[in-house]
């Protein structure tokens, strides 16, 4: 009994002493601002900033390599907190959200064949360039849904992804996963957008999809603010110039120009 108490007690004492001494010898100095910034970051490790997770970003911000606003997932309140820690002033940047530039659900867009492979867009696109007739269409297998660290995307009833703008932080994780490249960030204030990514000419688009943009240029001609440009048969609305009058949506012969915000 006595031997057990003494030997184990002694052992514990020696180990504790050793650890105590070691913690002094091997103490690593960490920058308190790095920890403070890491504390306020969203912690989703989405990689939207280009650094290896939130810890890497916190280090880069603290050492001045990058600005707090580079965190795509942080709202203005988090950026303000970071600015306070760093003691700098930050200009407000507008929040961006992801939009799906395709309306080619299986009702609207023809299929080339029946796909029964791995349930993932990046796998589906490898087989004959995807099962849909349009080579720019959404495949609907939800690679973007799996990629979203904030649970902001889900596949809707039509088999197309739907973005919850409240939850979307604009980090761009989904954009990096989409094999079609049909997800894009738009400023949240932009009123209208044209949800089609096809680079084909009007005739080819008409053959495969009912909701594809034919690049007829009617919207471009009718826009009173010259906010629309067409490049590679894709019309784009310039958010700076768009007044949100809605003339383009009215004039579009396919009625595909949509209100951007669903709220």
């Amino acid at each position: 009994m006595l031997a057990a108490v003494i030997s184990l007690g002694g052992l514990a004492f020696i180990l504790a002493l050793g650890l105590g001494v070691a913690s002094k010898i091997f103490a690593v100095e960490t920058d308190p601002t790095v920890e403070a910034i890491a504390e306020v970051l969203p912690g989703a490790n989405c990689g939207g900033c280009g650094y290896a997770g939130c810890a890497g970003f916190a280090e880069a911000v603290a050492s001045g390599q990058t600005a707090p606003t580079e965190c795509k997932a942080a709202g203005s309140d988090i950026v303000a907190q970071m600015a306070q820690i760093l003691g700098v002033k930050i200009e407000e940047t507008e929040k961006k959200v992801v939009k799906i530039f395709c309306q080619g659900s299986s009702d609207n867009c023809k299929s080339k064949f029946l796909y029964e492979g791995v349930f993932d867009c990046r796998a589906a696109v490898l087989l004959g360039g995807g099962y849909k007739a349009c080579p720019y269409s959404c495949l609907g297998y939800g690679s973007c849904v799996k990629a979203c660290p904030f649970g902001a995307i889900e596949i809707g009833p039509k088999g197309l992804p739907i973005v919850d703008e409240q939850k979307c932080t604009g980090c761009g994780s989904c954009i990096r996963q989409c094999p079609r490249g049909i997800l894009r960030l738009l400023p949240i204030s932009q009123k209208y957008y044209i949800p089609c990514s096809s680079k084909d000419k009007g005739k080819a688009v008409r053959q495969v999809c009912q909701t594809g943009c034919l690049a007829c240029k009617l919207c471009l001609k009718k826009c009173p603010n010259q906010a629309i440009t067409i490049e590679n048969n894709q019309p784009r609305i310039d958010a700076q110039k768009c007044s949100g009058c809605g003339v383009c949506a009215e004039k579009c012969p396919k009625k595909i120009i949509q209100l951007a915000s669903n709220g």
Binding site: L8, L11, A12, L15, G18, L19, A22, I25, F26, V28
Partner: peptide
């Protein structure tokens, strides 16, 4: 008890040494 004590302390020590 003795083994748990030693293993826990050892891992702590190793962690400190590697971190430094």
């Amino acid at each position: 008890i003795a083994f748990i004590l030693v293993i826990a302390a050892l891992v702590q020590l190793v962690e400190m040494v590697i971190q430094k």
